[in-house]
Amino acid sequence: MITASSNALYTDLSCYYDLMCADINYQDQSDYVHRLHQLFGNNGTKHLDLACGTGPHVRHFINKGYQSSGLDINQPMLDIAGLRCPEADFVLQDMCDFIVEQPVDLITCFLYSIHYSNGIERLRSCIASAHAALNKGGLFCFNAVEKTMISNSSVVSHTVDYDDSHFVFSSGWNYCGTGDKQSLRLSIEKSTVQEKQFWQDEHPMVAISFSELERLLSPYFEVYTFEHDYEKIIPLEVNAGNAIFACIKR
Rank of each mutant, 00 (worst) to 15 (best):
L139Q: 01
D72R: 00
S5Q: 14
C141V: 10
A240H: 10
L106M: 00
A81E: 02
I114C: 07
Y16R: 07
G41R: 00
F245L: 07
S30Q: 00
F167R: 07
L213D: 08
I233R: 02
W173E: 07
G65T: 07
G177W: 09
F169M: 07
C126Q: 11
T178H: 13
A130I: 05
E121D: 15
F90P: 01
P219G: 09
A8L: 12
I127A: 07
D89F: 04
S211P: 00
F61V: 01
V238M: 12
N42Q: 03
F142V: 06
S69P: 00
Q194H: 13
T45G: 00
M205T: 12
D72T: 02
S157Q: 09
L36H: 03
V206Q: 13
Q200K: 12
S191C: 12
D89M: 08
E101C: 02
Q38G: 05
Y26H: 06
A88N: 05
Q200Y: 14
S211C: 06
S153L: 09
I150N: 10
I80M: 11
N242D: 12
M1L: 13
D28V: 00
H131Y: 14
T225C: 13
C85M: 06
P56M: 01
V58E: 03
A207H: 11
M20G: 08
G179T: 12
Y220G: 09
K232S: 14
C126E: 12
F167E: 08
I107C: 01
D18R: 03
H131V: 07
L19Q: 05
G53K: 02
G172S: 07
I24M: 00
D31A: 05
Y220Q: 13
R215D: 12
S171W: 03
Y26K: 00
I150T: 10
